[in-house]
Design a protein around this nucleic acid. Structure first.
Lengths: 268, 268
DNA sequence: CGTCAAATGCGCAAAATCGAGCAGAAACAC
DNA sequence: GTGTTTCTGCTCGATTTTGCGCATTTGACG
């Protein structure tokens, strides 16, 4: 007990995991950390800090440079699923509620492995006899826990930690086996010139397959995603049938989307 | 020894369950606990704390690390499945721990959608480069949350509420695509005359496919299942390669299993 | 291009922690 | 009472983490 208090008095001579967590926080707020600074602050030797940063580098969280390390700007795909789910939660819920109105009884719908799509099932309680096709293990189990009156088909495949969904050739083939009334999907960015883009090559292929195999492709797109560009093309605006968002888009966007024949749904 | 008496004088030398409850509270509020910190706070030896944390790890509540333990964020996925999981929990853990010893690095193993099989992944932390093939959505996501160093393949298919796993023809075909080193499965009942039996027609077909496509079929069978009969045959005893149970079977059973060429694994 | 202080990676030894096994104490069953 | 089980603390060899020395690399400065 005394020992611990003493340590606290001296500052935190933290150990192992907790120290690395501290470094993570520093990185989050400051983007850059320096070996000496951390060593001093944490009362450990620079060697230890170097080792820690080495671990974080292996994880892909930072890039080392001479004297310290810099936070790697992560595509949001690599932020843990449950953190991502909290981001813009209000927006996702607004979108999900509006999107749910598109669904009618007895339909077959598909959902991709995104946090936005994962918000949708909560609003499907009053639909009867749905079939839900999804690439997301998380969404599949969520539907069970919600006691949805629906049949759930999950593609299977290799499980991805970041999306908590499945990827790979098997997954794509499974999607291709179903033609759906509605396909709900999201992505990281939407710009007029570059269309819908996202970071993960494999996930993009799955979205494309979903879009190809549906009567009505519905893009769930919160306001933060407009006029952004990621790098891998999902599809152009013209290939959409419908876009659901949480705020009224600008007049310019509305005009563009209308001219492209995209039905736009937003609150009020 | 003096130390202990002193401790008694100072107050809380908490014992057993009460101590573990305290650790639970600490975990809830702080997310991370340290062996030494707890030992001092609770006036017991570090050994005891290690044992306690070991128990909590088996329960799946924490993940141990050098010097302490961290609360496992088990963010959703619960309840109806969980109640069944509590039954014979101790037996399942004993079986899982023994079964895990059968697994070697770099192997491909399959797990069916049973609660007994679901206990296994917790004991696979020290194996490297595993591939896990499962029909269970629950197990797949559990493996993620455990941060297992393994690739997870999930068959997909139509989701069953009772097993939280997949069934159907698609599922069977997916299993058939992989040949595994080990197949771990469980079932309702095991009798000498009628072999392994279970209730659900569809699930039985999947188990059979798993058994057909493996080098070593391992039946996870707690003591309550011996000399029981359900109705749908999975396979006869002779088709097993190995049986793992939580208590020494009767001499008669041991003799039978030996004569059938089944390796029998039980504690001690 | 050369110099030099600072930072780095590597190996090693000290320290801390771990798990397994053993033995004593307390609780319990009979 | 006797035997059994459970819990706890301790010992010991093994593992992990940490700090330091040392040769090497880096990058700023002249």
């Amino acid at each position: 007990m005394r020992k611990i208090e003493q340590k606290h008095a001296e500052g935190e001579s933290i150990m192992g995991l907790e120290r690395i967590d501290f470094i993570r926080e520093q990185l989050k707020s400051k983007k850059v950390v320096y070996v000496n600074q951390l060593a001093e602050k944490l009362f450990v030797s620079p060697s230890t800090i170097r080792r820690d940063l080495g671990h974080l580098e292996k994880e892909g969280l930072v890039r080392r440079f001479y004297g310290g390390a810099k936070l790697m700007e992560h595509p949001s795909n690599e932020i843990p699923f449950f953190t991502r789910k909290e981001e813009n939660l209000a927006a996702k819920e607004i979108i999900a509620e509006l999107a749910a109105d598109l669904v009618a009884d007895n339909q077959v719908i598909s959902l991709d492995a995104t946090t936005t799509a994962a918000t949708l099932p909560r609003f499907l309680h009053n639909k009867e006899n749905l079939k839900i096709i999804t690439t997301s293990a998380q969404i599949a189990l969520d539907c069970l826990d919600l006691l949805l009156p629906a049949r759930i088909f999950c593609t299977g495949g290799w499980l991805s930690a970041t999306s908590r969904g499945f990827t790979g050739e098997t997954t794509r083939m499974r999607i291709a086996e179903y033609y759906t009334d509605l396909a709900f999907f999201s992505a990281r960015a939407f710009s007029w010139e570059n269309g819908i883009t996202d970071v993960n090559e494999e996930d993009v292929c799955l979205k494309q397959e979903m879009i190809r195999r549906t009567r009505k492709a519905v893009f769930l797109c919160d306001h933060t995603k407009f006029d952004q560009i990621s790098y891998r093309l999902v599809c152009g605006a013209a290939e959409l049938d419908c876009l659901v968002t949480d705020r009224r888009p600008s007049d310019e966007w509305l005009k563009r989307l209308e001219s492209a024949g995209v039905e736009v749904i937003f609150p009020e």
